[in-house]
Structures are given as C-alpha cells and as structure tokens.
Computed example of a mutant assay.
Amino acid sequence: MALVKDNILLQLVRGTLGDQLTIYERNGQIIMAKKRGPSKKKPTKKQLEARYKMTIAAAYAQAILKDPELKAYYKSLAGPGQNAYNMAVKDAYKSPEIQHIRFEETDVVVTAKDEFRVAEVDVCVHDAAGVVQERGKAVLGRNGVDWYYRAVGLPVGGKVVVVAVDLAGNGTVREVRLE
C-alpha cells in the first residue's frame, strides 16, 4: 500500500488498473494498493457467523436511514470519516452489557451500558417454582446508566431475569437467583 502525495497524474484516477493495482481515496488521501481478490479458503464457522451478523447490521442501518430522527442521532455520534450508516452498523453489531444487578429493599437496580444507548430494560420476577410473579419495564435513573424497577415482592428461592435492549433491538439477558 502506498500513499500518493502531489502527483498530478493520479489526482483524478480512481479504480483498478488491469489486474494489478487499485487506486482509491479515503479521508482525503489517495491510496494505491495491490488488487485484492477473493480468498480461496473455505470460510470458518466464526467467519460465516460474523458475515451473517454484519448482514443483519447492514439491514438495520439501511432502515435507520429512513427515520430522520434516528439518522440525526447516529450522525451526531459520527467522527471524522464516519457517517450515520457507519454508526448504525456499529450499534447493531454489538449488544448492550448488563454490568450489575443489585437489590435495594424491593427495588431492582440494573446497571446497563451500551456504546450508544440502552433503549429499555425489562425485569421479570419468578418464584421458587419458576412461575412468573410479575414483569415490567424499568425506569432510567438520573445518571443515565442505572435502571430502576419497583417489585411488589422478591420471593426467596426465586429469580430475577433482566433483559436490556438497545436501539437496534439487540438484547442481553441476565438472571440472578434470590436468596
């Protein structure tokens, strides 16, 4: 790969020359590189999974571009050389992270983070037999990271199942046993 500087001949040239060179521009710089071809190796299972995940992320990004409000949100987060589409793909590719679940009397406090934004947190309380006692949506706290859900009761021997969902619809599930 070579960066081209002050070459009048290559200032207006873009594309592939024969089967040898590719000339393209990225972030205002002209780059000349050896032409790449398709791999001759069979893709691994992880590669196929990554390709599928990227296909889903790209489809989400295409849909986001039609919503002016979300497009403006993602564009506001874009850095140099990035756009709303890039940010939407990045958001759709990664799921939110549930960092911590703690209990304050009958409140369930969930610390959930995402590189962009956690859209909602759902809490489901099960008793010792696994029967759902209650479920509902948590409310975002003032710090923008903690989500609060006021439970009617937290049965001993039961469990609390928390689902954090980001703007792209990716969900992360975490379960905590009640003692």
Rank of each mutant, 00 (worst) to 15 (best):
A2T: 09
A2Y: 10
A2W: 11
L3K: 14
V4H: 06
K5L: 14
I8W: 07
L9H: 04
L9G: 00
L10W: 04
L10Y: 06
Q11P: 02
L12G: 12
L12I: 05
T16I: 08
G18Y: 07
G18V: 05
Q20G: 00
Q20V: 10
L21A: 09
T22N: 06
T22Q: 08
Y24R: 11
Y24E: 00
E25F: 03
E25P: 01
Q29D: 02
M32Y: 03
A33T: 03
K34H: 06
R36K: 13
R36N: 08
P38C: 07
S39W: 04
K41Y: 13
K41E: 15
K41M: 14
K42V: 10
K42Y: 07
K42C: 05
P43G: 12
P43C: 04
K45H: 14
E49G: 02
E49P: 00
A50H: 14
R51P: 00
Y52S: 12
M54Q: 10
A57S: 11
A57I: 01
A61G: 04
Q62W: 10
A63N: 06
A63G: 05
L65S: 13
K66D: 06
D67R: 08
P68G: 00
E69T: 10
E69I: 11
E69F: 09
E69A: 11
L70D: 02
K71E: 06
Y74G: 10
S76T: 05
P80A: 04
G81P: 02
G81S: 07
A84P: 14
A84F: 13
N86E: 03
M87W: 01
M87T: 00
A88H: 02
A88R: 02
K90Y: 04
K90V: 01
D91T: 00
A92W: 03
K94Y: 14
K94Q: 12
S95L: 05
P96A: 12
Q99A: 09
H100V: 03
H100W: 08
I101F: 06
R102D: 10
R102T: 09
E104F: 03
T106Q: 04
T106V: 01
D107H: 07
D107Q: 09
V108F: 04
T111D: 15
A112N: 08
D114K: 11
D114G: 12
D114E: 08
E115M: 11
E115I: 03
E115D: 15
F116R: 06
R117H: 05
A119R: 08
A119M: 05
E120Q: 14
D122N: 05
V123Q: 04
V123T: 07
V125Y: 03
D127G: 09
D127A: 13
V131M: 15
V132T: 01
Q133H: 01
Q133A: 05
E134T: 01
R135P: 01
K137H: 12
A138M: 06
A138W: 08
V139F: 12
V139T: 15
V139Y: 12
R142M: 11
R142Y: 07
N143P: 04
V145N: 07
V145A: 12
Y148Q: 11
R150F: 03
L154G: 02
L154K: 07
K159C: 08
V160Q: 10
V160E: 05
V161S: 06
V161L: 00
V162P: 06
A164Y: 12
A164C: 09
L167H: 09
L167N: 14
N170I: 13
N170R: 15
N170D: 14
N170L: 14
T172Y: 13
V173R: 11
V173W: 02
R174N: 07
V176A: 14
V176H: 05
R177P: 00
L178D: 02
E179G: 14
